[in-house]
Design a protein around this nucleic acid. Structure first.
Length: 567
RNA sequence: CGGGAUGUGGCGCAGUUUGGCUAGCGCACUCGCUUUGGGAGCGAGGGGUCGUGAGUUCAAAUCUCACCAUCCCGACCA
């Protein structure tokens, strides 16, 4: 590519509304432009990087036996109703009517669609299968943000495995796990797998791949001593046991005028860790109670996952709470409550002599024995882990890291194959539903995270495998000798299949240097009379800034080797 | 969906509080001359429905109302 023909609209100023580093740099360096909220155009440079991201993914997924397909992005409502996700997904799905009045949806993911293709699988002899696509997804996000990190229209690689049994699924799952780690490494990312909540995907096991990043949206629990890592939506920890004072025979009520908060009750002499925090929640219209220790935080996602994943789970309004329990928030409790599902956090098992609201405004109970006085529906792990607590594996002090999710793999099991009738005949003549897995990587999100992880004050620093160009050649004068040398190196590199751009623009050298650095091209060959007098050109590495002189004649071969070595 | 902010040539912004002449500045762009190894200098130009609509007024970028869009925080999020 000759730069004079290339549309690479770099900006001198960082765009004003870009908060995330990758957003600002990708716009400033001319890779992307926004059309509207959550929708971006990939300009030439952006497209070049996207193709490289996709190529790496293809290579690795093909490497574990993947077969690429391309499925529709617009789906009939019916298939989403069959799996039960039409209602479950709610407003996240873009929907539209066609001219006949039929409901359609733009795909947010493709489990149903791949399963429908899979219904032609009839025998165990055809399995295992691994199918994938790189396809556009649409999600009507409540709040698109941070450039390419959270958008409404994006490319995703999604693969789907089909197996006879769970052992087969485990193998495909592990193969993806390893392939994903190789992929992220090639992206220049320091990614690690964490235990995750499967959320609306269903299934019973999933691993998210995370990269630490301030622009991220997930909090991850990570043990610095062992390999324990989990999303806060799922992770657990060990906390010191509390030894309670001897229990009175029964709980006692006492007046607490004006006391509405854990803190206020604490000031009145009842330590937060000896209080019960009773939260009234509404799950798909049903009012339920969740109880955690006074100084603990309820994890909504943990609750949701363990009570069957309702499509709506929210805190009750004060009015709803009063209707159910007879008091306003601040004096609520589960003691003596009947006919309501009551979920107690496991940390409360065996606790005695606790304090809680009496379901009468301005009144609390003390001396509550949790197991004796509360009709527990189920003990669940409901509390959110805090930094500094102990690792469940090794006792190390847990960190909580802000991360971006760069990939997610799911053991789906038979949820979709049962819903969509995907059954096969086994060797013994019996019939069983196919065991499925699904595995996703966001293409453009990874491109953005690669920038978040690789930049300096001059701009982006692409890893060699993702760079839009591997080398830029910068002639600093336009005299005949300089241009002849630059062109000759350029043509040799082209012949060696190196991705090279020749900056033949009629602009000052400083502009060329700045653009090459901003765009993040890993290697720069500077050609000018100074070194050409000795038959040499300069070679500068973007990341280190180090420059060396090399002979013009050897330049192309040397650089081609360096490029190959860096991949 | 709740809270906050912003919307003025391609980009970044000032002007709005206190209404008043042809709406400014920097970058970018065009032309000329000079310059030329780290985002050049001088000179001359071109380009704006001031987010949209309604209203108040002799007069609106500026005041009022409604709407729209975008960003940030939260809620939400395979």
């Amino acid at each position: 590519m000759k730069w004079s023909n290339m549309y690479a609209p770099t900006l001198r100023d960082v765009p004003g509304n870009a908060e995330a580093v990758s957003h600002g740099l990708l716009v400033q360096a001319g890779f992307i432009r926004q059309l509207h909220s959550g929708h971006y155009s990939m300009l030439y440079l952006g497209q070049l990087v996207q193709r490289k991201v996709e190529a790496i993914i293809r290579e690795e997924i093909n490497g574990i036996g993947g077969q690429e397909m391309i499925l529709p992005t617009m789906h009939p409502a019916d298939i989403w109703k069959q799996s039960g996700r039409w209602d479950k997904m709610g407003e996240i799905m873009f929907t539209l009517e066609d001219r006949k009045g039929n409901a359609n949806a733009l795909g947010i993911t493709h489990e149903e669609i791949f399963a429908s293709v899979g219904t032609e699988l009839t025998s165990y002899k055809q399995l295992p299968q691994l199918w994938y696509q790189i396809q556009i997804k649409f999600r009507d996000e409540a709040r698109p943000k941070s450039g390419l990190l959270r958008v409404r229209e994006f490319h995703m690689k999604d693969s789907y495995s089909f197996d006879v049994d769970w052992d087969g699924l485990d193998k495909q799952f592990d193969a993806h796990h390893d392939a994903y780690l190789r992929i992220f490494k090639r992206f220049g990312l320091d990614a690690f797998g964490v235990l995750a909540s499967s959320g609306a995907m269903g299934g019973n096991s999933s691993v998210e791949f995370m990269v630490e990043c301030p622009a991220g949206e997930d909090d991850v629990i990570k043990c610095p001593k062992c390999d324990y890592a989990a999303n806060v939506e799922r992770g657990t920890s060990v906390i010191p046991k509390i030894v309670d004072d001897a229990d009175p025979e029964t709980y006692e009520r006492f007046d607490t005028p004006g006391v509405r908060t854990i803190k206020a009750l604490e000031d009145a002499g009842h330590e937060a860790n000896k209080q019960l925090k009773t939260l009234v929640m509404v799950a798909d219209g049903e009012t339920i109670l969740a109880v955690v220790r006074g100084d603990h935080q309820l994890s909504l996602q943990k609750l949701s996952d363990q009570i069957g994943g309702p499509s709506e789970l929210r805190p009750a309004t004060p009015t709803e709470a009063k209707e159910l329990l007879g008091a306003m928030p601040g004096s609520l409790g589960a003691v003596g409550v009947k006919g309501v599902r009551i979920y107690l956090d496991k940390e409360l098992q065996g606790r005695t002599n606790m304090t809680t609201g009496a379901n009468e405004d301005d009144v609390h109970y003390s001396g509550v024995n949790v197991e004796r006085d509360i009709e527990c529906t189920e003990w669940l792990d409901l509390r959110e882990v805090q930094a500094g607590e102990e690792c469940v594996n090794c006792g190390g002090q847990l960190d909580i890291l802000r991360c971006v999710e760069v990939g997610h793999i799911f053991k789906l099991g038979t949820v979709y194959s049962e819903a969509l009738g995907l059954n096969i005949a086994n060797a013994d003549g019996s019939t069983s539903p196919v065991v499925m897995g699904s595995y996703g990587i966001g293409v453009q999100r990874n491109m953005a995270v690669a920038v978040e992880s690789n930049y300096d004050d001059k701009g982006i620093i692409w890893p060699m495998e993702l760079a839009p160009f591997e080398v830029s050649i910068v002639p600093v004068k336009d005299d005949e000798e300089t241009m002849a040398a630059a062109t000759s190196v350029y043509e040799s590199l082209l012949a060696s299949n190196v991705d090279v751009v020749l900056d033949d623009r009629d602009v000052r050298a400083g502009v060329k240097f700045a653009d090459t650095e901003l765009i993040g091209i890993p290697l720069r060959i500077t050609v000018g009379p100074k070194t050409l007098a000795n038959g040499e050109v300069e070679l500068t590495e973007r990341r280190s800034g180090e420059t060396q002189n090399i002979a013009v004649d050897a330049a192309a071969a040397t650089v081609a080797e360096m490029v190959a070595a860096a991949k």
